[in-house]
Simulated scan of single mutants.
Amino acid sequence: MAEERGNQRPARGGGRPSGPRRSDSSSSGRGGSGSGSSRDARPSRGGDRDRPERSDRSRSTGDRPGRSSSGDRPGRSSSGDRPGRKGDWKRPVDKQLSRTESQAQYDGPDLPEEITGKELDRSVTGQLKGLPEKLAARVARHLAAAGMLVDSDPETAYQHTLAARARASRIAVVREATGEAAYAAGHYAEALSELRAAKRMNGATEYLPIMADCHRALGNPEQALKLAKSPSVANFAPEAKAEMTLVEAGARRDMGQLDASLRTLELAPLMNKTRANWVVRLRYAYADTLEAAGRETDALMWFHRTMAIDSDEITDAAERAEKLEQTRE
């Protein structure tokens, strides 16, 4: 699998400092003491007629309309900061939190130093070559980390793929990895969305069994059956075809159609001579459905047949068989 999307992705004020405030003394107008003394020295053009005093025309900040007695313009705070400029202005708390969460997702979980991205298959790294070198390396490391963790810690694997998706959302293999990790972590709606996106990008159909199972998990067995009937399923490899058979049989059971579920499984290669896991799982599903249908003798036989090839013990067929034997005694 692939690299970072932490769980995601980038968060996905203000300007210059205000200048010093104009004080009352500096805005006292043209009638200050310095300018007044120079006017007194000039001869009066009106003879003995007195000129009106100019002091009442001085630019006292309190006399001008639109200003307060402190000299501040409307809309300014007493500290002199202007809206939209640096000072005490801060982003609203809700937006700060949103950005922090998004940034954490973009950063993703910590990457172990030993993970280099070279662990990925060449078919995966080949799709990353269109990215800048450093970006491709980062995405590759998150994908590699996700692949290593998907079985043991699927949630952390999913967060790695979210970080990868945040950096390379237009690359099909990244969306595929995100979908698979989301599926493993139980995020079925997200998995379905990501795998649909990957399918649109590369036209691949191998995602169909997982997509169908996502529909089941979301309570839409009818949609799962539609995908199970896709023409491309006929061309699937045996393992992928078995996966789709299991999903189809499960969807029939979800709808209460036990007989249809049994018929679906009976058409599968239950007696295939290989001991591959997909045969083990087919036999186990058939035994389980037989028991659900009340056919305990047949179910016991198929649990034993499952045990015979389940050398890795991927099922609990042995326990199920023992329990059935005890109930029949």
Rank of each mutant, 00 (worst) to 15 (best):
L208C: 05
L192C: 04
G126E: 10
W89D: 15
D94Q: 09
L162S: 06
S25C: 04
A240R: 14
L267R: 14
R76Q: 13
G126A: 10
A212M: 07
S169E: 07
A163I: 00
A293G: 13
R122P: 07
S38N: 12
A145K: 03
A104N: 10
G6Y: 02
L149G: 02
E119Q: 07
D72F: 05
L300M: 11
A145L: 09
G71P: 05
G84C: 04
D88E: 14
E239Q: 10
G32L: 08
A299E: 07
K273H: 14
Q159I: 00
A317Q: 00
L282F: 08
L270Y: 03
D213A: 02
K86Q: 15
A184L: 02
A136Y: 02
M271T: 15
M307V: 12
T327I: 09
E113R: 12
D63W: 04
P112C: 03
A321R: 00
G256L: 02
T61S: 13
D50C: 01
R16S: 09
Y207E: 11
R12Y: 07
L324Y: 00
L131R: 06
D50R: 14
D56T: 08
R51M: 07
A177D: 01
L282K: 06
E53N: 12
D259S: 08
R175P: 00
D94L: 07
L282W: 05
K226E: 12
L97M: 12
L270C: 03
E53K: 07
A145R: 02
P238F: 02
R49L: 06
R138D: 11
D213S: 01
R305W: 09
W302A: 04
R76F: 10
A260L: 10
K90Q: 13
K86A: 14
R138Q: 14
A292C: 09
V139R: 03
A268C: 05
A292F: 09
N272Y: 10
A260F: 03
A276F: 13
N235D: 14
A197T: 14
P17G: 06
A268S: 08
T327D: 11
R281T: 10
N235P: 03
V139D: 03
A293I: 11
E243L: 04
R295M: 11
F303T: 05
K241Y: 06
L270S: 04
W278E: 11
I210R: 13
E266N: 08
E190I: 06
K229L: 09
S33L: 12
R22K: 14
A308C: 05
M271E: 15
A11N: 02
K229P: 00
